[in-house]
Design a protein around this nucleic acid. Structure first.
Lengths: 111, 111
DNA sequence: CTGTATCCTAGCCGATACTG
DNA sequence: CAGTATCGGCTAGGATACAG
């Protein structure tokens, strides 16, 4: 999602746009959530945790998150291959936001 | 954006999905931000603040936010018509999240 | 096991014209 | 002034097949 920061008329520039662009997409917060709770997780484990995500979407999403500096990717050149993902520090600092969002959701979500 | 809460494998159900669905889209946080700062705002004012949003997108977005209970719509049956938008309480409670997101964005956004 | 490559689709969002 | 109607593009994300 492109955020419209380029045309703020009055010079104010709220920084949440960047945060939103980092967080957006259907899966990123969920991935951060699982990595937070489980530490180091392999590709297939992650796929199973997420439920219905396709391999293509998962790998695209992980690559984006890696480029954004949110997660680490550790590859072991074995046969069969093994790749582990974990939260980078930048990813960990998102935790307060996730907490707030969980709280808000819990208080406001209707059944 | 549909969030994948329907298939959480291990019974955990993070509530941020609901929050995310409330916040998503290109304009909602920005609208909340402006309503927070300016109180009661008319339709056209809002349009000017937001810069490049089209009337259609704006009115669709406002309607969604109204349905979600985030904002109030006050209509004055005059000629010419006048409609004022303001934050509802539910919308105001999002402010801590926005704050956190602004902070995080400010610390992490690269130039 | 860990991915890519193609193809496809739904839905967001914009442009433009029109209305009460 | 405050919208709606119509049209259409773009892109995130899914299905499926293939690859190292």
């Amino acid at each position: 999602m492109k955020t419209p920061k380029e045309n703020m008329p009055d010079g104010q520039e709220p920084f949440f746009n960047y945060t939103l662009s980092i967080i957006n997409g259907k899966w990123k917060l969920l991935i951060i959530y699982y990595l937070s709770k489980n530490g180091v997780v392999r590709y297939n484990e992650l796929q199973r945790m997420l439920g219905k995500i396709t391999y293509k979407t998962l790998s695209t999403t992980l690559k984006e998150m890696q480029n954004d500096g949110l997660i680490h990717r550790q590859e072991y050149p074995q046969i069969p291959p093994k790749v582990e993902y974990s939260l980078a520090e930048k990813g960990q600092t998102l935790w307060p936001i996730i907490q707030e969002m969980c709280q808000w959701g819990e208080h406001n979500q209707e059944k």
